[in-house]
């Protein structure tokens, strides 16, 4: 399988590469549009600050490429947030793939939301062999507001979208590469799509 991880300089992608390696797949880093467009599956990672990550995407011309992809694409953490319409972080316009906005948790809870939390209201083949109430590892200060495209939700301050799906595009707020066996199952499901 031709599996590409979009490498635009945002965050720690070694862990994602290793997670696929543990499943027996070689995920290759690439910032080359010609390579990404022909891949079987694409991972869109991201850790860090939204406006500077979007700036890096623009500089490599990947901001216009990603919404046009036809193969299954999985955004992880900030990657998922950048696929939304808009994020309050750095007042940043997103790629508009998911029809929802990203907001900051209020000061009524500890921020970042850090640790293992349950996922609920799961639907989609992405969660095959994963159960309602299973745990995923999350680290984030901003969340995607719940919407029609939610395929999983989590509770922290409010109920928010912890996974999204629109056509061939998938996004997860949690880190499947760090979420033990449940996370590995999700990555396997993505490869099986």
């Amino acid at each position: 399988m031709d599996l590409k991880i979009v490498n635009y300089g945002a965050g720690n992608i070694k862990s994602i590469q290793f997670a696929f390696q543990r499943l027996g797949y070689n995920a290759v880093l690439s910032n080359n549009p010609d390579e990404i467009i022909t891949a079987d599956k694409v991972i869109f990672p991201g850790v860090g600050e939204a406006s500077s990550a979007m700036q890096m995407l623009k500089e490599s011309g990947l901001d216009s490429l990603i919404p046009k992809l036809k193969q299954p694409v999985l955004g992880i953490c900030l990657g998922m947030q950048l696929m939304c319409n808009y994020t309050e972080e750095g007042d940043t316009k997103g790629l508009g793939i998911f029809n929802t906005n990203v907001k900051r948790f209020s000061k009524s809870v500890k921020v970042p939301h850090m640790g293992w939390n349950t996922i609920k209201n799961i639907k989609s083949d992405l969660f095959k062999n994963i159960s309602e109430g299973d745990y995923m590892y999350l680290v984030h200060s901003y969340y995607a507001a719940n919407c029609d495209e939610s395929i999983a939700t989590s509770d922290y301050e409010i109920e928010y979208a912890s996974a999204l799906e629109n056509d061939n595009f998938f996004g997860v707020q949690f880190h499947p590469e760090k979420s033990g066996k449940t996370g590995a199952q999700l990555l396997k499901n993505f490869l099986d799509l």
Binding site: N12, K14, S15, F18, A19, R22, Y137, V139, H175, E177, K178, S179, G180, K181, G183, A184
Partner: peptide, 25 residues
């Protein structure tokens, strides 16, 4: 496949950059 933290002797941006590149969370 779970998160981990690395500490000890870290005193610069470069130190952290190196550790994160090696896969520390």
């Amino acid at each position: 496949n779970i998160p981990f933290t690395v500490g000890g002797g870290i005193s610069s941006v470069e130190d952290v950059d190196d550790l994160l590149h090696c896969g520390a969370d």
